[in-house]
Structure formats: structure tokens, C-alpha cells
């Protein structure tokens, strides 16, 4: 290990202490013949040119690739210039520093103002009061949202509400062809996600646990569209095996058998909407879902 090689600068300063001094282990000075000033100057100037191209192209609203590539080149060329500039101008130094060792700390006494030994419990009361004040700051959290109450157990569906499509048009059983499927909503609540519905006309014979009283025309059923796994819309229907399919994590439900899950992470059937037809021949709800819609909670 060589000794420090840096001569102190002619300054009226005291000699530097070892902590600040560089302990040089090896030093390799690049020979001036290897310096490539042309490269440094060339890349730096090219970088500046591309920076100007970037700014002007952007001001003139040129296409994205023009100013994008100009900006990228300006930065990359500057990187090359900086690298080479430092390589040419500075010796390559390897240095050492002593490590700080925690087990070798200095034990110099520290002058503290010591309290008069009196009533330590007062300190605890003060800290306790501060902690209580801090905790009370959490109270406004309860203003962040309404109390859940029954909101997650009910939807907008009510007895007599018509079943409408996304445009608010009421649906008749005949609007659903065999093997067809429609996304539907309660009249007046289009877009209310927890109430979203898939209405389908089964090509097979519905079987329990489907509630057959809620099947219209012997084949039209309505299920909640909210996946009971994590709430994605159950968006796909495969007629071949009457499978309702959730694209998020591939839960599969058997629409012929009360939409019980047949594969994937969902554990509960999609709730079936009590479905009927009103005097004008439109699909209506006979009531809200009888089981909880969507994913499980707490």
C-alpha cells in the first residue's frame, strides 16, 4: 500500500486529516498520445446539434420519431463525450478508505444536560398524552367512505323492475335467441355494476340447482354478471357446454345448472335473478337476488 501521494495544495489550511485524504493504492495516468480530443469534441458538438434538432422539431410539431430519436441521440452522444472526457483527462485511481467499525466506537464522554432526578412518571404521562393526540388524528379516516351497512348484500333490483339493455330499452324473452346472451340492467340503473346481469336462452334443459320458477319460456335465465371470485364481469358464453366464463381468472360456471362453478378459483354460484314477464310481455325482476352478489367479503 503506497502512502498518500496528493501534495497539499498551497493553502493556508492545516494539513488534511486522514479521513479526508485519499489513500491511493494505484494510479495509472493515461499517456497524452492516447487522448482522443476529436472524439470528445465531435460527440459533444453532435449532441448539442441533436438537442437543437429535438427542440426545433418539437416546436414545429414534427412527427414523434423525429424529435424522439433526436433527443435520444443527444443524450447518448453526450454520454459518450462525458465518458471519454474523463478517461482522457484524469488518472485512473484506485484508493482505499478505512471502514467504520461500530464495535470500535470512541467512548468520549458527551456533555448532556442531566435532569434533576424527580418524578419520572410525569415523563410517561407526557409521552402518553402525545401518543393519544397522535392516535386521535386517525379519526377523520371514518369520513372517507359511507358505512357499508347492507350495501353489499343488496342491489338495485326490485320486484317489478324491467330488465333493460345498455341503451335502456326493455327486453322481451324473444330478444334473446337460442344460445344467445345479453348484458342487462335494472330499468333506471344502467351501468350500476353490482346489478349487472347476463340474460341467456339455454339450448339445453335447465336443471337444479337452477330455480325453475325463475326460468321464463322454459329456457331464459338471468344470472348476476359479477364474478363471485374477484368481481370481474363474467363476459363469455360457450353454448356447447353452456359454460359462462370469466376472462380474469378463468372461473367457469354451468349456466344449465344454476351457474355453479365447474372450474377455476370461484367458489360460489352466480346468483340467479328471480325473473318473470310482466303484462306487456317484458322481462321483469320478481325481486332482488336472494344470495349475495359478487366476491366474498370479511
Amino acid at each position: 500500500m503506497s502512502s498518500p501521494t496528493r501534495p497539499a495544495r498551497p493553502e493556508p489550511e492545516p494539513a488534511t486529516t486522514p479521513a479526508e485524504e485519499l489513500l491511493v493504492l494505484s494510479e495509472r495516468t493515461p499517456p497524452p498520445s492516447q487522448a482522443n480530443d476529436a472524439l470528445v469534441a465531435g460527440t459533444a458538438i453532435a449532441s448539442a446539434v441533436f438537442a437543437v434538432v429535438f427542440a426545433v422539431a418539437l416546436l414545429l410539431e414534427a412527427p414523434l420519431p423525429v424529435y424522439g430519436i433526436a433527443l435520444a441521440l443527444a443524450m447518448l452522444l453526450l454520454a459518450v463525450a462525458v465518458r471519454r472526457y474523463f478517461t482522457d483527462r484524469f488518472p485512473d485511481v484506485e484508493a482505499a478508505e478505512p471502514r467504520l467499525h461500530l464495535d470500535e466506537g470512541d467512548d468520549a464522554p458527551i456533555a448532556d444536560v442531566e435532569p434533576v432526578g424527580r418524578r419520572p412518571f410525569l415523563t410517561r404521562i407526557l409521552i402518553g398524552a402525545g401518543a393519544v393526540l397522535g392516535l386521535s388524528f386517525a379519526a377523520p379516516v371514518s369520513s372517507l367512505g359511507p358505512s357499508p351497512g347492507n350495501a353489499l348484500r343488496t342491489t338495485a333490483w326490485q320486484r317489478g323492475l324491467r330488465v333493460v339493455d345498455g341503451d335502456g330499452e326493455p327486453l322481451r324473452p324473444d330478444d334473446i335467441p337460442v344460445g344467445g346472451v345479453a348484458t342487462a340492467w335494472p330499468n333506471g340503473a344502467v351501468g350500476d355494476e353490482p346489478s349487472s346481469l347476463v340474460v341467456l336462452r339455454l339450448s339445453g334443459q335447465p336443471q337444479p340447482p337452477t330455480d325453475l320458477d325463475w326460468v321464463v319460456d322454459g329456457s331464459v335465465v338471468a344470472y348476476s354478471k359479477v364474478c363471485t371470485h374477484a368481481g370481474c364481469p363474467v363476459a363469455l358464453y360457450r353454448e356447447r357446454d353452456s359454460a359462462l366464463f370469466c376472462p380474469c381468472h378463468q372461473s367457469t360456471f354451468d349456466a344449465n345448472r344454476g351457474a355453479v362453478p365447474t372450474f377455476g378459483p370461484a367458489a360460489r354460484a352466480l346468483p340467479q335473478l328471480p325473473l318473470g314477464v310482466d303484462a306487456d310481455g317484458y322481462l321483469v325482476a320478481l325481486g332482488d337476488f336472494e344470495s349475495q352478489v359478487g366476491p366474498a367479503f370479511g
Binding site: 372517507l144 357499508p148 350495501a151 353489499l152 353490482p194 367479503f297 370479511g298
Partner: peptide, 18 residues
């Protein structure tokens, strides 16, 4: 929502409701 006990409460706080 899936947190036991507090899920619905917590979700309504974070998301401002249903």
C-alpha cells in the same frame, strides 16, 4: 373486501363506497 372482519369497512374507506 376479502379481509376478514374489516374488509367491507376498509374497502369503503379506501374506495369511497361500493
Amino acid at each position: 373486501l376479502s379481509f376478514p372482519f374489516v374488509g367491507d369497512r376498509l374497502a369503503f374507506w379506501i374506495f369511497g363506497g361500493e
